[in-house]
Design a binder for these strands. Structure first.
Length: 111
DNA sequence: ACGTTGACCTATA
DNA sequence: GTATAGGCCAACG
């Protein structure tokens, strides 16, 4: 059992390239379906976390790049997503429903 | 320890 | 489909 933040980092690191997930999905996987906002907070702290946390693969339920402004520059998140092969249109992930990667569905609910 | 905040989600109009 | 209101949980000051 690790800190809530660390759990978020672990799940985010498990997100395959070219795929995206939502804060609520991660929160639900951690056992806190109502702590979706907390996931975003963890992402904010992911900068001072060791290793690399692909926070750009984490978007909101609408597939909107809400946290793009929290990167070095608002364009960084979109650039990274497009670099992964994810098409980004008007700050929202294209074909989001197909690129959506749900940890609870893919990894399964942990004990 | 209390109050506020926050990269969200769901419901209602 | 867009706009507004409420709720949720954990960290920060």
């Amino acid at each position: 059992m690790e800190d809530f933040f660390t759990r978020v980092y672990e799940v985010v690191r498990l997100i395959p390239p070219g795929r995206v997930t939502s804060y609520g999905a991660i929160a639900a996987y951690l056992g806190a379906p109502g702590a979706a906002r907390m996931v975003g907070w963890a992402m904010n702290a992911s900068h001072h976390s060791p290793g690399f946390v692909p926070a750009h693969r984490v978007v909101n339920r609408n597939g909107l790049l809400t946290g793009k402004h929290h990167f070095g520059s608002p364009a960084v998140m979109q650039e990274l997503l497009e670099n992964e092969g994810v098409r980004v249109i008007d700050d929202h992930v294209d074909n989001f429903s197909c690129l959506f990667w749900d940890p609870v569905k893919e990894l399964g609910e942990p004990d």
